[in-house]
Design a protein around this nucleic acid. Structure first.
Length: 156
DNA sequence: GCCAACGTTGGC
DNA sequence: GCCAACGTTGGC
């Protein structure tokens, strides 16, 4: 059984269309710089599935599904002095941050806006919908996964 | 642009 | 270990 997750990205930085245009529709998920989010990245296994969420977007929305194709490995952007993700406290000997690789599985025909998700029965406890929730990598319960996927198919 | 809700830093 | 100050996220 795969586990389910949700990954946030600002589309102005990296959108689901950018992923669709990437080689093998695959990308490394670099730049996570929050310990709780990092620990979720470490918990991911190949074959796990994740919603792709557009934050700081108009509207903010779940826009598709990706699959984990490589488990956590050191985020080498932390070692690049000129990267926005540089962190001098992360060394090659003792990497502080990790990333996974994900491949695009599905782009929803219609995005599922945050505002709509807030009205859906069964999603009340979803991390994404918690007030003040800022986690950029978060687990999704199986039941929540099924409900959201069902919505994505209902909007055809 | 505002601001609530965090997370991090650092003095003590 | 506490907590004030500061920085960041992200909806609105």
């Amino acid at each position: 059984m795969p586990a389910y997750w949700l990954l946030k990205s600002e589309p102005s930085t990296f959108s689901i269309d950018d992923l669709a245009g990437s080689p093998h529709r695959t990308t490394c998920w670099e730049g996570v710089r929050n310990y709780q989010a990092r620990n979720f990245l470490k918990a991911m296994a190949v074959g796990d599935l994740a919603f792709f969420y557009h934050s700081q977007a108009d509207p903010p929305a779940i826009v598709g599904v990706v699959e984990v194709v490589r488990a956590a490995y050191p985020d080498h952007f932390a070692w690049r002095r000129h990267s926005v993700y540089f962190d001098e406290k992360s060394s090659k000997q003792n990497p502080r941050w990790v990333m996974v690789d994900v491949r695009l599985r599905k782009t929803f025909r219609e995005p599922l806006p945050l505002e709509q998700l807030r009205t859906v029965n069964g999603l009340e406890e979803m991390e994404l919908l918690r007030k003040g929730s800022r986690l950029s990598v978060q687990p999704v319960r199986e039941r929540e996964w099924e409900i959201v996927l069902g919505l994505s198919q209902a909007v055809r």
